[in-house]
């Protein structure tokens, strides 16, 4: 006696496998678009390679130049240190913003308002010339009281310290918003559950709120870091000795303007690529406990919806 597959009463063991091996419908539009894009890429690569004005030999020669590598090192230092300052100021400002005290909230709001409201370029030039406003810095009694220590602004403010101040304080204003959004993204019930266990405010923040806020904070912070790698090039207006300043100094001597800009750009791209990989692993680290969600939902939840394979 034969049985019809799927008929009630047919046991699973007797049912045949029904593999789905379907043929996809043709996608001529997609093929043509891919062809056009492919052709364009090949053509672009060709024109760049055969273009003699780009001086590839010069570019290769200067990629490992000692001055360029020195500038690269300054760029890395500036990025890491000013992001560290920015993150510290950002967390501080965000926590102040969520405080019960109106004075603390106001001070934090004033900080973000001022430093997001004025151009970074202006801030950098300002910090570099701060000696014009405050010729000396001292530690002592406030409001013109006696000073314990005193320094000349001109000795304290080098292009490097001015760059650190400018980049770090400016970054803090943006990080404050990112951290605040992260903290607010945490379910208020989490705070209540932690308080119910008897945790202090500090413990609630450190053990429960911040670790969860990190999931929201890390992706845009990675973005800020990558952005900062390139923003450091603005320091060239105060002769910061970073990658772009150094490249400019070299092309003022050898007139290889485009070649030197390409040298700098290649290094910037190397740095941003490394930072992107680091960001990926950091994000994975803070997704702890969220792996039960199906992959596709998780992908769609990411702030920067990557890869829809």
């Amino acid at each position: 006696m034969t049985k019809i597959p799927g008929e009630p009463g047919t046991s699973a063991a007797q049912e045949p496998d029904l593999p789905i091996d379907a043929i996809r419908p043709p996608r001529p539009g997609r093929w043509i678009a891919a062809l056009v894009a492919g052709f364009f890429l090949v053509w672009l690569t060709y024109t760049i390679i055969v273009n003699e004005n780009l001086h590839w030999d010069v570019i290769v020669a200067y990629l490992g130049d000692g001055r360029v590598l020195g500038g690269l090192w300054v760029t890395i230092q500036l990025t890491v240190l000013s992001m560290a300052i920015g993150l510290a100021l950002g967390v501080l400002a965000a926590v102040m913003q969520l405080s019960g005290s109106a004075v603390l909230r106001g001070a934090s709001a004033l900080y973000t308002w001022f430093f997001r409201g004025t151009p970074l370029l202006v801030q950098l030039i300002f910090w570099f010339n701060i000696g014009l406003v405050f010729p000396t810095f001292g530690i002592g009694v406030p409001f013109d009281g006696p000073k314990l220590f005193e320094w000349q602004a001109n000795e304290l403010i080098t292009p490097f310290t001015a760059a650190l101040l400018g980049l770090g304080i400016n970054e803090g204003a943006y990080m404050a918003e990112i951290v605040r959004a992260g903290i607010r993204s945490v379910d208020p019930g989490q705070r209540e559950a932690a308080e119910s266990l008897g945790m202090s405010h500090r413990q609630v923040l450190r053990r429960v709120v911040l670790p969860q806020a990190m999931r929201v904070i890390v992706p845009p912070t990675g973005n800020q870091f990558i952005s900062m790698l390139k923003t450091t090039s603005m320091v060239s207006v105060i002769a910061g000795a970073e990658l772009l300043t150094v490249s400019q100094r070299i092309y003022l001597g050898n007139f290889e303007v485009i070649a030197m800009l390409i040298v700098a750009s290649i290094w910037y791209m190397v740095l941003t690529t490394i930072a992107s990989v680091g960001q990926h692993f950091l994000e994975k680290r803070f997704e702890r406990g969220h792996h039960a969600l199906p992959t596709r939902i998780r992908r769609n939840l990411r702030p920067f919806g990557r890869g829809n394979a």
Binding site: Q190, S196, G198, M199, S200, H201, Q212, F286, G289
Partner: peptide, 25 residues
């Protein structure tokens, strides 16, 4: 705040929506 936290240590609370810490096992 410290004394308030101390009082809460002795009172267990179970919520409608659990509020387990999602980043911990």
């Amino acid at each position: 705040p410290a004394a308030l936290s101390r009082q809460k240590q002795d009172i267990g609370m179970v919520f409608q929506r659990f509020h387990l810490f999602p980043h911990r096992t």
